[in-house]
Simulated assay, not measured.
Amino acid sequence: MLHVFVNDGGLLRWAKEADGAPGPVPRNTVWLDLLNPTPDELVRAEALIGAPLPTREQMAEIEESSRLRVANGILSMTVTALVWADTDEPRIAVVTFVLAGRRLVTIHHIDPQPFLAFRRRASHAELPITKGEAVLAALVEGMVDRTAGVLRRTGIELDAINRRAFRGRKLRSRGETLDDTQTLKRIGHAGHLIGKARVSLASLTRMMDFLGRDEGWNAGKATRRWARTARQDVAGLDEYAGFLAGKVALLLDTALGRINVEQNEIVKIVSIITVLLFPPTLVASICGMNFTAMPDMDEPAAYPSALLLMLLSALLPMIFVRLRRWL
């Protein structure tokens, strides 16, 4: 899918009539957004900038020299964006920015939320954007803001789990039930989301460093200054993500430790109950032996005495255990 944005009298306008039209792309195009492009759409975009665009296989390469390069004054940068963060399966999508003069071409196969939001803004409001560098800055800032929002929500989620995990001297209140399986799932999902966010932030950091160096392409002072500022924002988010990752590790250890303590408590109770039931079982076993010569077989008080002895043999060890605070 091809989205064409042109310079219309100093304003950025979505030229929807040119998206699917055959023939060359308008010469006043500022931004070409390629979402799952077809071969024909790639040919139209390459004809506009006069250079080949990276293929899907080239976008998937992880070497920095393959992701950040300059050729004939055309800047190609590939980063990873956090997508589907509001679902149970967050993913990392590869996005390529190709900056050729005053034009920007973006290639991606999953539509990140900042791209969708910026296209909506451009279709409903008049944006005073005439250069591809300004579009690049707006898209990257949207990606950073999106990642910041995801990390902020994840931090709130971890704080809620933390308040339930650490509550005074006791791990849980009397009568309170906690779904440990669900808690572990929430902690695991938060850790998975934070890991995806850090991968995206790392790629954005490398891109900001690359833009700030101005090696091999003619970048303006405003672009370099913006890149350095964005680099600081991304670095701050990465530090916060590292803090959240440490909190995830602590909460995971706490949850597993609580489960282990509860399991040990159950085994302890079962073991003590087994010991408490041993004396009355022994009395019942002795009194229940069927021998003719057993003493007290003909005594009227033999049966009540045996019952009383079994009761005492159960109560006395239980009182002893309670006094020692083993239960």
Rank of each mutant, 00 (worst) to 15 (best):
H3S: 13
G9V: 06
L12Q: 08
R13F: 04
G20I: 01
A21Q: 13
A21H: 13
P22Q: 04
P26E: 02
L34D: 05
L34A: 06
P39F: 06
E46S: 07
A51I: 04
A51M: 06
P54I: 08
R69N: 14
A71W: 09
I74Y: 07
M77C: 14
A81F: 01
W84H: 11
T87L: 06
R91G: 04
T96G: 08
V98Q: 08
V98Y: 10
R103G: 01
R103Q: 12
H108R: 13
H108L: 04
H109C: 05
D111F: 10
P112H: 03
F118N: 03
A122N: 08
A122C: 12
E126M: 14
P128N: 05
T130E: 12
K131N: 04
A137R: 14
M143I: 13
M143T: 08
D145T: 10
G149D: 10
L151Y: 07
E157S: 15
E157I: 01
E157N: 14
L158Y: 00
A160H: 07
I161L: 14
A165R: 02
F166P: 08
G168M: 10
R172H: 07
T177Y: 05
L178F: 04
T183A: 11
H192K: 14
K196A: 14
L201Y: 00
L201H: 00
S203N: 00
R206L: 13
K221L: 14
R225K: 13
W226L: 02
Q232G: 08
Q232R: 13
A235Q: 15
G236A: 15
D238H: 11
G246I: 00
I259L: 13
N264L: 03
I266P: 05
V283C: 12
C287D: 09
P295A: 01
D298S: 02
E299I: 01
Y303K: 11
L309K: 07
L316T: 12
